[in-house]
Amino acid sequence: MEFFHALVDPDNGFLRLALAVGLFSSITFGIIGTYVVTRRISYLAGAVSHSVLGGIGGALWLQQVFRFTWLDPVYGALFAALLAAFIVGRFGHGSGRREETMIGATWAIGMALGIIFIDLTPGYFDITSYLFGDILLVSGRDLKLIAVLNLVTILFVVSCYHQLLAICFDEEFARLRGLRVDVYYQLLLALTAVAVVLLIRIVGIVMVIAMLTLPAAAAALYTRRLFSMMLLAVFLSALAIVGGLAVSYSAGLSSGPVIILFAGALYFALAGWKKIRYRHP
């Protein structure tokens, strides 16, 4: 309740902004998450999000050492995410047996590079907000960027719905029908990468993967079409973000982890409920 009073307080513009960013990003979480879950690329998305730290570290280092003041860490993050998405998409996928190793390596090397760059950079940087997110630090620019991302995501999905459906369902058959499977796949991964970069503001590098999988996986338990799975996943993301934000504000806890706990609780509750409902007598 306290949270809702705080929302209408004219002094609390940051809280309304945080809520708006949270609600906006649930659109991307739900839609991209649906593909991450049905295409089973959560491990890939994890590698992409963790390697973002390398980009952030690299950008901070270049900023300080070479005076590239224009180089905001978000550009470094974007570069690292797209590069990682390309690497794992190109080499970490297919019939090879070592794909998991490739993904895991990208994951760890990205993080290691990030820490090394931050060590090399003079001055002290607190990377906690990158690692675990802080929705209360978002700016109006973040809101605009996430709005643009939502628009791009929705356009991509609406125009390629059936192609993406076929590729997620049976890649081999889609290829045989002459679809350029690799192009769609790389586009999907690139979009996932951009989404990860913008969404780490909310839940951080370490936990963004949970928001890309838990709401969609919970939605999958109760839906029978990809489209309805997306809608339910968007709704569940929004629920987790609003609930998490309210509790973290009232209890004075970090917002990222509380949002994740909400999403996790939703997932386990819905999975458990389904198990009880449909248990064989």
Partner: peptide, 13 residues
């Protein structure tokens, strides 16, 4: 999550 008709329609892609 996909309908039977949508699976069959993939043949027309």
């Amino acid at each position: 999550p996909v309908s039977v008709l949508n699976v069959v329609l993939m043949g027309q892609l």
